[in-house]
Design a protein around this nucleic acid. Structure first.
Length: 714
RNA sequence: GGGUGUUUAGCUCAGUUGGUUAGAGCGACUCGUUUACACCGAGUAGGCCGGGGGUUCGAAUCCCUCAACACCCACCA
């Protein structure tokens, strides 16, 4: 036979990738139930990874590219080794994130959610998400991801919603869930509460005011919260105030007339700070709320849910807080109570991570999860080695966080999510009744809580829900083998999965956690849309080919370390793909007359070459198993280019000139074996070109490289 | 303020438990169009392995210390 014409032209990824992916998908081999036997034996040992649900509200970015590439490399390798291999795809509704993306879209269209009913809003977001979900699944395919689409799961699928509600009920019955008034982070623009990890601090420079408050001087950057302040707090050991006793009261002139203030001695008062005396606003400050709780003090709301001052502010009522601030200061100044102003005061302000809105602490009835008993389970799983985190840096971070965690607010005041299955009767009265149930309780007057779960409440149960907990046959894949994900999820997602997994099943959800770092731009800077330095994995794949793109995501991407990415890097691997193409052309041309089933007597050199070949395959296998995919990929690259092409092929030219010689027959057999073996060991990294070549081989052991056996050179 | 990491060639990074002369890619330079490949080949230059101290027969590797950078957490009345 002669060498196919396609090898006479450079490799063109775009013309073959879609067809190859369709061939794989149509074969059914992505589904482990359909995998063929390996070396005549049924596959027994399972290997499983669950895809972190990409948020169903946009295109894939470089982080997803890394994620999918690393996971798919491992998946393809273990499939070839003979494991019952499952990579399970899915997507996340991403509650608040998606709703804020959608609301921005509404805003651009000149609309707002506040004119819509909850049902209308939900259904519009649903349509929006289904559309982007479809596009994103196309992107996942484009990257060659060999996941089992028949098990594709969405966090709002009926069985997931139902399972998540069951978990909530079980936790409630076990006393791990409680409802209570707590100081929460409130986003006044989007009108929802947020958990700690959905907020971040931003450095600001604001004026800092000192006011006379009776006999004391107090300082604040937020005069607008001070209307209701009637407690002065100082450290019990502060000698300057030893004549004042806890509980003493005094009268003083304040913003809107005379008030009665009470002295509170509490260690929260920092003697080093200003005068060492402060007033507190428990409704609008977490720290103040804690002090108020300790001493059983009153608290009163000053700022409403829209961020406007309430009636207590008299003439300022109804004003937005930042509008009223200067007027309030002026009024106090006119009364002679303004002592001084520090105009260059630098402090950190808590803002909403997603929207940048300044968070207003508020007090609200919310559902909480008691974290301590669950955190203990996570820590003991780490101590016992049930879960291994590959990077000590992240393990340390995780341990520290779990040791200091606070109760988790899981209610969100948004419609886009799973509605909390709590039913109230006579809500807000002293006869209030609560029932936790998936269905409406019998009898009149029951109304369901309108709040939805924090999105991490459902994604925390992802490995369980995707595998059909509690009783699906797929639970044989639980615990899954490895969770590979971005380091930004070290608190948000990973510990929550371990918590829910150990709580519900007594077993961890995965044995190994592999955190990859961030993809940076060529200069080592964070990629961000606003800087315009992002690289889209899809665009890279279209320009340079998916295989080249995948290689650039894995090479020099050590676990836990950030990785710079540039077009030049991808271009280099495009050249590599072409190199492989030409190696194939050479070998097929030189071996098209041989009978591969008849093994010739091999020369000593060729025996050595085959043994080095096996060593290379073993090195790659070993490093994949030890999660050093970067070194495995690099090894394949170097072997192929600098050993096979530069040395073996060059040396073969002379040998092959001598027709019918034993050396030639030996070398032909060796070259063909090297080609076949090389395709196998490169396949996990560069699935498309290797499969495309495999399909053109004159002799092959299986119809598809994807399910061929990992190299054992004989 | 607390913590965790990083620092190796111009750039980006490897370097496994201490063991000959510290490696690769990209970039630079020189030569080469020899039918697998110019999306190429052959070769060259370039490093007191962040500084200082210690342990050792021997240190890029282990310990101490300093510095710079990065990230995480907490807090700022």
């Amino acid at each position: 036979m002669s060498v196919p014409d396609k090898f006479l032209k450079p490799y063109n990824p775009n013309s073959v990738e879609d067809g190859l992916y369709k061939m794989w998908e149509d074969s059914g081999y992505f589904n482990p139930d359909n995998l063929p036997k390996i070396s005549g034996e049924a596959r027994v040992e399972t290997w499983c990874t669950i895809m972190p649900p990409p948020n169903a509200n946009g295109r894939l970015h470089a982080g997803h590219g890394t994620d999918l590439t690393l996971k798919d490399i491992m998946t393809r390798y273990h499939r070839m080794v003979g494991k019952k291999t499952l990579m399970l795809p899915g997507s996340d509704h991403a509650g608040f994130e998606t709703q804020s993306v959608f609301e921005k879209k509404l805003q651009k269209e000149g609309r707002s959610r506040f004119g819509m009913s909850n049902n209308e809003l939900y259904s519009e977001i649903y349509d929006f998400v289904m559309e982007s979900k479809h596009i994103m699944e196309g992107d996942v395919r484009k990257l060659g991801t060999s996941c089992d689409w028949s098990r594709n799961t969405f966090t709002l699928d009926d069985h997931v919603v139902s399972g998540v509600k069951d978990t909530f009920k079980k936790m409630y019955d076990d006393g791990l869930v409680y409802r209570g008034k707590r100081s929460i982070h409130w986003n006044p623009k989007f009108k929802t509460s947020l958990s700690d990890i959905e907020t971040k601090f931003e450095d600001r420079k604001d004026p800092f005011y000192y006011f006379q408050y009776g006999p004391f001087v107090i300082g604040t950057s937020r005069p607008e919260t001070k209307f209701g302040d009637k407690y002065v707090v100082m450290h019990p050991d502060d000698k300057r105030y030893k004549d004042y006793k806890h509980g003493d009261t005094f009268e003083c002139e304040w913003i809107n007339g005379k008030i009665t203030a009470t002295i509170i001695k509490d260690e929260a008062g920092d003697p080093e700070m200003g005068s060492g005396v402060m007033t507190i606003t428990p409704w609008h400050s977490q720290v103040d709320f804690d002090i108020a709780q300790r001493h059983n003090l009153d608290y009163e709301q000053i700022i409403d849910w829209d961020g406007k001052l309430m009636d207590i502010a008299d003439e300022f009522a109804g004003k937005k807080i930042h509008m009223a601030r200067e007027d309030i200061v002026k009024k106090l100044d006119d009364k002679g109570l303004l002592v001084k102003v520090d105009k260059d005061y630098e402090h950190a302000v808590r803002i909403c991570e997603r929207t940048g809105v300044v968070v207003e602490p508020q007090i609200k009835d919310q559902w909480f999860i008691k974290m301590e008993p669950l955190a203990k389970k996570v820590l003991s799983a780490l101590d016992n080695g049930k879960v291994k985190i590959l990077t000590s840096k992240h393990e340390n971070m995780l341990r520290h966080w779990m040791n200091n965690t606070i109760d988790w607010n899981i209610s969100r005041q948004i419609v886009w999510g799973i509605q909390i299955p709590a039913w109230f009767k006579n809500k807000g009265t002293k006869d209030e009744e609560v029932i936790i149930s998936k269905n409406k309780p019998d009898g009149e007057g029951w109304e369901q809580d309108v709040d939805t779960f924090d999105t991490w409440f459902s994604s925390g149960q992802w490995p369980l829900m995707t595998l059909g907990y509690p009783d699906s046959k797929d639970m044989e894949y639980y615990p899954t083998t490895v969770m590979e994900t971005g380091a930004d999820l070290v608190f948000k997602w990973v510990p929550r999965m371990i918590m829910f997994g150990t709580y519900l099943t007594g077993k961890v959800p995965f044995k190994t956690v592999y955190f990859h770092g961030m993809v940076l731009d060529a200069k080592g800077k964070k990629m961000s849309k606003s800087k315009g330095n992002t690289l889209s994995p899809i665009e890279l794949a279209e320009e340079f080919g998916t295989d080249a793109t995948r290689m650039s995501f894995v090479v020099s991407n050590a676990p836990g370390a950030d990785m710079p990415l540039s077009q030049d890097k991808v271009r280099a691997y495009k050249k590599f793909a072409n190199k492989i193409w030409n190696i194939t052309r050479f070998i097929l041309t030189e071996t098209d007359d041989i009978d591969i089933n008849t093994k010739p007597t091999l020369t000593d050199t060729d025996v050595k070459l085959l043994s080095e070949l096996q060593e290379t395959a073993d090195f790659i296998a070993d490093h994949i198993e030890r999660y050093r995919l970067d070194l495995a990929a690099d090894k394949a690259y170097h072997y192929i280019w600098h050993e096979l092409a530069d040395n073996i092929l060059e040396a073969s030219k002379d040998i092959l000139k001598v027709d019918d010689s034993e050396a030639k027959l030996s070398r032909q057999y060796t070259l063909y074996t090297i080609l076949v073996t090389t395709l196998k060991m490169l396949h996990p990294f560069m699935p498309f070109i290797t499969e495309e070549i495999w399909q053109s081989l004159p002799h092959k052991e299986s119809d598809m490289l994807m399910v061929a056996q990992w190299p054992v050179v004989e």
